[in-house]
């Protein structure tokens, strides 16, 4: 067994265990932390593929930025542990077989696709190649996505401020 394979197996095990734990945990904070674990394990897998940039960005964007928001919201809402219910009959007889079927299908398709692939020689500079793709070949869709996100942010701001006739006062508080 090569060290690479060993590291892959460990990381994959952590990722899967984390993903399962997201569902099993009853408290939202614990679920969120499991999800962060999954993302860090994925970053490790990217590192194994010699794309350090993607790994770092994976952690900065997903684990560092998006999940922080999740955790903040959970903490501020003071969400408690969820209640367990028995599985509905529909979920039991239709959902479970469908989920298993989907899993088998995915495993088969991905397995077949990987077998037919020939291993590519690693690119000389993955980071450079990626930046070329993003900022030259696909610069228009890339910028369009940014604008989309900007619009979403502005939309959220408008929705949040609706109903407040007086905008929140900024500046120093008056001390009486």
């Amino acid at each position: 067994m090569t060290p690479q394979l060993l590291i892959f197996l460990v990381l994959a095990a952590i990722a899967i265990a984390g993903a399962v734990n997201v569902i099993l945990q009853r408290h939202p904070i614990h679920s969120a932390i499991s999800l962060i674990t999954v993302m860090i394990a994925l970053a490790g897998l990217f590192l194994l593929l010699e794309s350090e940039f993607i790994a770092a960005v994976q952690i900065i964007v997903y684990a560092g930025a998006i999940m922080v928001l999740f955790v903040f919201v959970i903490m501020l809402l003071n969400a408690g542990a969820e209640e367990r219910t028995d599985m509905s009959r529909m979920a039991c007889y239709v959902g479970v077989p469908l989920a298993i079927f989907l899993l088998i299908e995915l495993a088969y398709q991905i397995g077949a696709a990987t077998l037919s692939m020939t291993p590519q020689p690693p690119a000389e500079d993955v980071t450079r190649g990626l930046s070329m793709l993003l900022f030259q070949d696909f610069v228009f869709p890339f910028e369009l996505t940014s604008i989309l996100i900007l619009v979403a942010i502005l939309g959220a701001l408008v929705l949040a401020q609706r109903g407040e006739s007086v905008p929140a006062k900024s500046g120093r508080e008056t001390i009486t």
Partner: peptide, 20 residues
């Protein structure tokens, strides 16, 4: 080769230590 980014990645997770 992305040492600086890696540093930022690690410090960005550091937020959890404090919040949690």
């Amino acid at each position: 080769n992305v040492g600086l980014l890696a540093i930022f990645a690690i410090t960005s997770i550091g937020v959890y230590g404090v919040a949690l």
